[in-house]
Design a binder for these strands. Structure first.
Lengths: 240, 240
DNA sequence: TAATTTCTTGACTATTTGGTCAGGAAACAC
DNA sequence: GTGTTTCCTGACCAAATAGTCAAGAAATTA
């Protein structure tokens, strides 16, 4: 993750670092953190609603309940705030694939991953939307991140999946495209929420409907990924 | 489809309708049509790149190669142009499901649908992105369309799929969520193109890579949808 | 050709918006 | 307390932008 959420004038660090380094964070620091957190949450909401260009700093400030000038004190430019929001989101993105290891039981691990992603879509739709919007417009801000961290992550997890396939534990599907599909489907329930609601004929997708969606998605992918029943393991791994 | 692409002052219609109604469209009409088409294409590109808020009419006019005031002659407001672009796109959306009928061979029909959607993603990425952007922001402009036409279309096709399932010709998956998944995955190759390229480690997704993606997506869904081999048809339909 | 309608466009305007700034209020250190 | 740093904010500004307008060019009709 790049340099996260520490924008705004940071002159205080110099003095502070000497007297109260490891001690409890001085109040001053806490004011800053608290305000930045409030601004980040507000910004996430507004950016999710309107995109980068559509969002105005005045909107964000209003949503956060602070004067615009105060926002600019912490985040001198709109883009700084946007970056901070994205960095925040990207941090969440990373941990999710942790369960996908060669040691894990493939189907269970994939199911858990899907459920985690679906939960995420429900819990943080704004984060997902900001992310989607950024990528939709060519990832001008996080392109470098995608080409580095994300690409490496996928490469690493693709290796795991290839091992699973070699051992006949899951069906022979292209691992990278499998990830694209998993992301696309799980995030569609956050990003395209309005479409889902429209087709389901409701104003807002209910909790139950989201649970149904989760089961449907799990069923779909598990069917796709389940090996063809014939011959199990072939070598290596933990044999029957 | 709502009232499509006929904005701008339309005073000419009154007079015209009398003299040359069914005859070849008078030149005047052709100038209008040609210019509107040019503007629509340009607008689609720019809206896809920047979203509604991020796009400026000056950008669109420049892309179309006409003065800004001329654009406003045909589309008095930015929103009119946006609506026209969306209406244009929605028209394309409709026909695609034509092959999904009870009579069709389910797996072949679904495969054809997927391939068509993937081709669409490649051929009209801008259309897809404008659409995605609109939905991402809550479908303020086409929400009504989604709740009416799209919902009805899905309901109708879901019926077809339920018949297929009842006859044991495809696996018992929720039809509506199957559609969400199909759309999500196929459109991800247009909308999230930049992410796909980043993960694949290229600047631009090549033709070959898109073909590979198509095969991967087809394989994934056909595996998911294929019935469990046990007992085929049960009643009705065209028996073996 | 003359009359009429459609089209074109440079120049202009009102509004919105990102960002600045100076002066003062808190918070903190000593 | 006194001094110093951090924080707050109303007022302001320059740039960008959607939309207007009037005057004229081009096309079309009679």
């Amino acid at each position: 993750m790049p340099e996260t959420a520490c924008l705004g004038q940071s002159k205080q660090v110099g003095k502070k670092a000497q007297s109260a380094t490891t001690a409890a964070p001085p109040r001053m620091q806490r004011v800053r953190d608290r305000n930045q957190a409030v601004l980040l949450r507000a910004a996430e909401r507004v950016f999710a609603r309107a995109g980068f260009a559509g969002a105005t700093v005045a909107d964000i400030a209003r949503e956060a309940g602070v004067p615009k000038a105060n926002l600019h004190y912490y985040y001198p430019e709109k883009r700084d705030l946007y970056r901070a929001v994205l960095d925040n989101i990207l941090a969440l993105w990373l941990g999710e694939t942790d369960g996908l290891t060669t040691e894990a039981e493939p189907l269970a691990a994939l199911e858990a991953y899907i459920r985690a992603k679906m939960r995420f879509s429900r819990a943080y739709p704004d984060a997902s939307r900001v992310f989607a919007n950024e990528i939709l417009h060519g990832a001008p801000e996080i392109g470098a991140y995608l080409r580095r961290e994300l690409r490496q992550l996928v490469a690493s997890k693709a290796t795991v999946i290839k091992v699973w396939i070699k051992d006949g534990r899951i069906a022979p599907l292209d691992p990278v495209h499998l990830f694209f599909a998993l992301w696309a489907v799980t995030q569609t329930y956050a990003d395209f929420d309005s479409q889902v609601a429209a087709v389901l004929g409701v104003r807002k997708v209910s909790v139950q409907q989201h649970l149904d969606a989760t089961e449907a998605v799990v069923a779909l992918f598990l069917r796709a990924v389940r090996p063809d029943a014939v011959r199990r393991q072939r070598s290596s791994g933990k044999p029957a």
